[in-house]
Design a protein around this nucleic acid. Structure first.
Lengths: 100, 100
DNA sequence: ACAATTAGTCAGAAAAACAAGACTACTCAG
DNA sequence: CTGAGTAGTCTTGTTTTTCTGACTAATTGT
């Protein structure tokens, strides 16, 4: 496990790779997301993968986890400022994929 | 195998995922690359993975494969215009990974 | 009391990605 | 003729990623 990486973008690229991360990120753009909501809405999603994706996105400081109410358990994930800064890059990626 | 993907960026993101693709892309920025050169220069690279990466990058229209001389076998891969258009995005990704 | 929802975790299986080594096929230098 | 370089492919095996189903633990609805 050595990581003397000559390519800085690679790390960032990795943080958004994974089957559901781009999808989750995308939904988070439109507002706070929750675990079970993602599970329902994302086609082919499974608990484990969504849970791991959320955890990693949180660890990477892209999403912020917040317990809204503990009584009827309600947790929300929102984009952090760092997450917001990725938005423009995503928009460009999307623009690119359209006209090609 | 259905791909009615709600996330356009995901496809593009996938084209650059994989252990060596970012590295190969990066080298291609500095000039034409060749198979054995990548094999030598990229740390931990192996024939199979590099071959597959090159093939996929070519299929995705990011690299252009050209036989320079068939006699002493010499093949070069160069960035296509589509590949070029990814450069700015990469630069932003790198800028981002620095100040975070 | 019983079912459903919330948000997970855990163990094991299945699938996908990656790696190692043998092999093809052709050219060039000695 | 032999060894080295070019650019791969093919088969097999390992490692990583993803998926499935069972389980926890609490609350709300019927």
């Amino acid at each position: 496990m050595e990581n003397e990486n000559g390519c800085p973008a690679q790390a960032l690229l990795k943080t958004l790779s994974g089957k559901f991360k781009p999808e989750i990120f995308r939904k988070a753009l439109q507002g706070p997301v929750r675990f079970s909501e993602l599970l329902r809405d994302i086609d082919g999603a499974n608990k484990q993968s969504v849970a791991v994706a959320l955890k990693e996105l949180e660890e990477q400081g892209i999403l912020h986890k917040e317990i809204i109410t503990p009584k009827p358990l309600h947790i929300e994930y929102t984009l952090t400022p760092k997450g917001q800064s990725l938005v423009t890059i995503f928009q460009q990626l999307e623009a690119l994929s359209l006209h090609l």
